[in-house]
Amino acid sequence: MKLNFHKNHKLLFGVVFWGFIFLSLIIAVFPALWVQQENEPLPASEPMTELERKGMKVFINEGCVYCHTQQVRPITMDENWGRPSAPGDYARINRPSVWRQTPAVLGSERTGPDLTNIGKRQPSSVWHYMHLYNPRSVVKESIMPSYPWLFQVVENPPKDATVVSIPGEYGPSNGKIVPTKKAKALVAYLKSLKQVPMDAKPTAAQQAKADSVAAQAAKKKINGATIYANNCASCHQSDGQGVQGVFPAMAGDPVVTAEDATDHIRVVLYGLQGKTIAGTEYQGIMQPFGESLSDEEVAAVINHERTSWGNDAPTVTPEDVAKVRNNDELNKIQAEE
């Protein structure tokens, strides 16, 4: 038969079929194979624990990836989320069973915050439980769904049970909230999401991007209110009132309003937990910000806290922050604690 696409169906559909297979091989199958051959976890990363793996399964089954990315792009606007993601960051995510494929954690929508570093940003289990039970109990403007089916409401929880206290209007009318195994696994997974240092040499393109990111960052305006909203408000709340019994209020807090700001700076730099303030014991854990925030940023957020919500305490300078950072004696006490 003639070589005529219009008349020879075998020729036409043969080209369509094999042509597409050829294109698929060069744009998808072979690249996937090459990427797989170079698949190597970052040297500093650790394998997931059994519990974290279970948590990732809950994360995937509940469809969290439809609103949360785990992908930091090498552009300035993403630098709040961490360093640019590298292939090695995902190297340990593999196929869980013959029935399901490797989870898609990179995501395609950012309706909620990126979770690449959520474990670093929010190390407090209590916060995660409250947030999962009802996100609005900690972030009023949140539109995330509540996940009450990951919790049980029990009348008299056993002594060793983890009890989550939820502020009045968000909790159940009677009984206590106890996380199920799934909730515990999910929170363990979320807390495990932390970027580890990248030892591998970045590609030329990534390096060029990273350089321009750094140059942009140097020029960035520092705004205490924005730093507070991004790093502090999910626990201490945007109105500075905290959450009763879990996260202390900033408004009127003795450390925040003290003349001497040294303790205030230390808490921001090194974090805090298990502290009793004015007779109330707080369950939440506060993470250290010393690594993620510069002296200028720490000073800005501290000054925001010291001058907002009716607080009127003396402000600090970046030099004050640097002094605390470089004070060996204070650091030694910190290490002992």
Binding site: V16, L33, V35, I93, T102, A104
Partner: peptide, 26 residues
Amino acid sequence: LWTIILVLVAYLPGYQQDGISQTVIQ
């Protein structure tokens, strides 16, 4: 025909395994 190939490439194992190799296929 394209969709049959597409679905096979999307679901067959082997070349798409961990993190980023899976993302290339996705």
